[in-house]
């Protein structure tokens, strides 16, 4: 057992854990943040994507113990002050989800795409950037639309805030 401290959704968390514990298990089992899902064993489906120090990573492929001092944001921490994040709104508005299981990872990846690539995303870029997120329900059609719209909404929100 070893001790780890990290900030999850703005709150500092310290825990003594088995070094084997993956970040995904730490979030789901230790913190009961069950919005982060696990859909495969080979780091491919992306249902577990969270942000660590502002970057999207697969929480099923990171040891919690290795992230001492990290800033972690999960789907539960994306909405600020009771307002949905523009990307969350976009997924609802454009019917970018059906069963909802891949959705948290999809949204976290989508926000990361916008952080890296900016607000003007064409369809080809979005489809390529979603390589690490698998959805079985939507055929991606509406996810692509949601990401494009969410990207522009994020930019608009940023402009409004400045």
């Amino acid at each position: 057992m070893a001790s780890v401290t990290m900030t999850v959704n703005g709150k500092s968390v310290t825990a003594t854990i088995d070094p084997r514990m993956l970040l995904s298990s730490f979030l789901r089992e230790h913190l009961r943040l069950t919005g982060t899902h696990v859909g495969c064993d080979t780091s491919q489906c992306g249902a577990c994507v969270v942000h660590v120090d502002g970057r999207a990573i697969k929480s099923c492929t990171a040891l919690a113990i290795s992230l001492d001092g990290a800033q972690v944001t999960t789907i539960e921490g994306l909405a600020a002050d009771g307002h949905l994040h523009p990307m969350q709104e976009a997924f609802r508005e454009h019917h970018g989800l059906q069963c909802g299981f891949c959705t948290p990872g999809m949204i976290m990846s989508a926000v990361d795409i916008v952080n890296r690539k900016g607000a003007m995303l064409d369809e080809h870029t979005i489809r390529e950037e979603l390589e690490g997120n698998i959805c079985r329900c939507t055929g991606y059609h509406n996810i692509v639309k949601a990401v494009a719209a969410g990207a522009q909404a994020m930019a608009a929100t940023k402009v409004a805030a400045e």
Partner: peptide, 9 residues
Amino acid sequence: IGDPAVRNR
């Protein structure tokens, strides 16, 4: 290489 989340690690 891999996908964006993999490239971040």
